[in-house]
């Protein structure tokens, strides 16, 4: 199963902020963590993470610094800022609401799982 591009893009802010809330990190490690958490379902093209990081940095949600990695290479580390934490809390509420809403309808569907026809009145009502 793969997640649609739009959904990946929409969830990227929340995911990156949440991972950085666990501790400072850098691009490769963030991606590795995403892969770990999603069990490989949430597949990002590696390079695309960086424009996201830069956007978050520019809006002040995260900040960066260059430091030497243990390999001796220079590496750009990111850290979540206070506005970033507030944004994360907000994102979290939003995603939970979406999740809850979807959850309700999934269970409603599960209740009458063999009769998808019953969905039709649901849409007509709205």
């Amino acid at each position: 199963m793969s997640i649609s591009k739009d959904l990946v893009a929409a969830s990227s802010t929340a995911l990156v902020l949440a991972i950085l809330a666990e501790g400072d990190s850098y691009g490769y490690a963030i991606l590795k963590r995403v892969r770990e958490l999603s069990g490989g379902a949430l597949e990002w093209t590696d390079g695309m993470l960086y424009p996201v990081l830069h956007r978050l940095e520019r809006s002040g949600l995260i900040e960066s610094r260059w430091a030497r990695a243990e390999s001796g290479r220079r590496r750009k580390y990111y850290r979540i800022t206070d506005p970033g934490r507030r944004q994360l809390a907000d994102e979290r509420r939003q995603w939970q609401t979406v999740d809850k809403t979807l959850g309700k309808i999934w269970s409603a569907m599960a209740d009458c799982s063999n009769t998808p026809v019953s969905l039709v009145p649901l849409f007509q009502r709205s």
Partner: peptide, 16 residues
């Protein structure tokens, strides 16, 4: 050049 360095670091990590 900063971005390139960042991406290169990623690439090297991946290769390793």
């Amino acid at each position: 050049s900063q971005d390139a360095a960042e991406l290169e670091d990623h690439l090297r990590e991946q290769i390793a």
